[in-house]
Design a protein around this nucleic acid. Sequence first.
DNA 1: CAAAACTCTGCCGTTGACGTAAAGGTTGGG
DNA 2: CCCAACCTTTACGTCAACGGCAGAGTTTTG
Lengths: 155, 155
Amino acid sequence: MTGSSVTAVTDCDETLLSIGAAAARAGVTERALRYYQELGLLNPSGRTKGGMRRYSEADLQRVARIRELQTLLGLNLDEIAVVLGNEDRTLQIRAAYFDEATDPTERKRLLLESLALATDLRGTVEAKRAALDDFLTDLDARIERITTALAEKFN
Amino acid sequence: MTGSSVTAVTDCDETLLSIGAAAARAGVTERALRYYQELGLLNPSGRTKGGMRRYSEADLQRVARIRELQTLLGLNLDEIAVVLGNEDRTLQIRAAYFDEATDPTERKRLLLESLALATDLRGTVEAKRAALDDFLTDLDARIERITTALAEKFN
DNA sequence: CAAAACTCTGCCGTTGACGTAAAGGTTGGG
DNA sequence: CCCAACCTTTACGTCAACGGCAGAGTTTTG
């Protein structure tokens, strides 16, 4: 995202955060960050020479994404790995797409692939929203009945 | 719900299901049903003289509700206990409301109480739906971009 | 009425997502 | 240079939501 090379092994751009700061800003614990890394969900953008993890803003975004997928969609970390993998793949595709060397046929295939990934996820989310909407409809009906009763009898 | 007394201790109305049948119909395990009972979420409507659990259709509905609250809203069983408690309370209120002996002032109070309970839950659900909607909007934007690219270049 | 099938109450095991503590290495201010 | 604060890996602990088994009792079926 920044112009830097892929996963800097050298010391940091100064803008990178230690695990403590990153955890605080992301609203999770250090343990969680290490755990996500252990599962291959999130590799810190850098390490110091001494071996300490350094997190970028993009890394924080990724943490936020993980939490969102957890709490909003109720996915477990393995499923989240798949979704994030898809999103990473989409970025790769984007890169290849804008590469001059990619021929039109391949470009089309890449677009279709990322479309498939996004559409698939959309299905999951839409199903969930539909169920939630039903839930809300029932709830609103109940609230409406009570409100009407109140209005009729005690206005 | 049926005309029977509260939580029949005697033998069953014949329409009640054994734990095995109930579990199969509800799509959960017997262990889960016993666990829900242990947590006070679901007391089987009856027991045989020998002490075996008997589940009614209403019990099955309750299981479905529990699962819904779990998967849809991501509540844990303790939180579900609260929600179900509120719903039970609403039923009590309903009963008292239609009781001749309840005076108007009390009736109003009862209505207001159940309104508060329902409205509170609605808040939780609505927040979740809003978050999901945002999620969907982002996703749709991404899909739209890809689709447009496809249409422009490869129509 | 007996065998087969089902269920009962413990009670210990498992899985996911971390928590927490130990024993040491790294970093930055004075 | 030194020390306090922060970080490292390693490894065992925890909590929710059940899974699964043993040993005994119950219900059903032939």
